[in-house]
């Protein structure tokens, strides 16, 4: 301990004190603080850049998810549209068929009615013609039969007899 105290040099202590002060303060101003600040700034920059990259990644993922969602929606919409179109088509076909059937039936029934009426008209005309022909025949017959006076008198008499009977 004695030797230790003896070894203590005040001059060396003094110079060490001055030098340490110089290193701490002068180097502190021109080196330590700029270095520490720069390192911190760089680390913050790196952290920020990493955070930004992470954000960008997340956004990309979001965007991708959105895209997929949109795509899925579009696909679903397309499917729905196609389904609807098919339904419409089927409905239209069914409708057209039904309408066509109705129209056909109507036309058939109309045709039937026309045929009926034509038939009736033809029958009526036939009847009139038959009657007129019969009348002509009858006329001609009567003319033949009643060509002499006697036959005429006989007929009148016969008719008169019929009237009496009534």
């Amino acid at each position: 301990m004695d030797k230790l105290i003896n070894d203590f040099g005040f001059g060396l202590f003094f110079w060490q004190f001055i030098i340490l002060l110089v290193i701490v303060f002068i180097l502190g101003k021109f080196a330590w603080k700029p270095i520490v600040n720069a390192l911190e700034a760089r680390e913050e920059g790196i952290a920020d850049a990493l955070a930004a990259a992470e954000n960008a990644k997340r956004e990309m993922a979001n965007l991708k998810a959105d895209n997929e969602k949109l795509l899925a929606e579009a696909r679903a919409e397309r499917d729905a549209l196609i389904k609807e179109a098919r339904e419409i088509k089927e409905k239209m076909l069914a409708d057209a068929k039904a309408e066509g059937e109705a129209v056909g039936e109507k036309m058939i029934s109309q045709a039937k009615a026309t045929i009926e009426s034509e038939k009736a008209a033809a029958i009526v005309e036939l009847k009139t013609q038959v009657s007129s022909i019969s009348i002509e025949i009858a006329e001609k017959l009567l003319k033949e039969e009643l060509a002499n006076t006697e036959a005429q008198a006989k007929l009148v008499e016969k008719m008169l007899d019929d009237v009496k009977l009534n």
Binding site: D7, G9, L12, Q16
Partner: peptide
């Protein structure tokens, strides 16, 4: 290795 220096530090 001198006590003055380490004492100062």
């Amino acid at each position: 290795g001198s006590i003055s220096v380490t004492a100062c530090l």
